[in-house]
Simulated assay, not measured.
Amino acid sequence: MKYMVLILLLSINTAVLAQKNEIVKEKWHWGNPVKQDTTAGYVQVIKVDNILYISGAVSTAVTPEGITQVYLALERSLKSFGAGFQNVVKENLYTTDIEAMKKYNDSRKAFYKKDFPAATWIQVERLYMSDAKLEVELVAHLPKY
Rank of each mutant, 00 (worst) to 15 (best):
G56Q: 03
V62T: 14
V43F: 04
D97C: 07
Y53F: 15
K2N: 14
Y3Q: 10
S80H: 08
V48R: 12
L93W: 13
V62A: 12
R108D: 03
Q86H: 08
L72E: 04
K47W: 06
I7V: 13
V62G: 14
E125I: 07
A100E: 12
S80C: 15
A15D: 00
D131V: 12
A83S: 06
K144W: 01
I98P: 00
F116L: 12
G56T: 00
I54D: 02
N32H: 05
Y145K: 10
N13I: 13
I67T: 06
V43D: 06
E26N: 13
G66R: 01
L134A: 15
T63H: 09
M1T: 02
K27Q: 09
K20M: 11
A132C: 11
I46A: 15
I98W: 01
E137D: 08
G66Q: 09
G31L: 03
K2G: 10
V5N: 11
N13A: 15
Y145F: 08
K102I: 03
Q69W: 14
V62K: 03
K90S: 10
R126E: 14
Q86Y: 05
F116A: 08
A118K: 09
K133I: 01
A140T: 10
L134C: 10
N92M: 09
Y71V: 15
V136W: 00
I12R: 00
Y94H: 00
S130Y: 13
K133P: 13
K113V: 06
S80N: 10
D49G: 12
D106T: 01
N92Q: 12
I46T: 13
K103S: 05
Y145Q: 04
N92R: 15
I46R: 04
V89E: 04
N105F: 02
S80A: 13
K102D: 08
I7P: 04
K102M: 05
S11C: 13
Y53N: 06
V124T: 15
G31F: 01
F116R: 02
I67A: 04
V34H: 06
L8K: 09
T120K: 08
D37M: 14
I46W: 04
S80L: 09
W121R: 11
E65G: 02
E135C: 10
E137P: 00
K102C: 12
F111Q: 00
G56Y: 00
D115I: 14
L78F: 11
S107D: 07
N32C: 11
W30E: 12
S77A: 15
Q44S: 05
L10N: 11
V62I: 13
T95E: 11
D49M: 05
L93Q: 07
S55D: 14
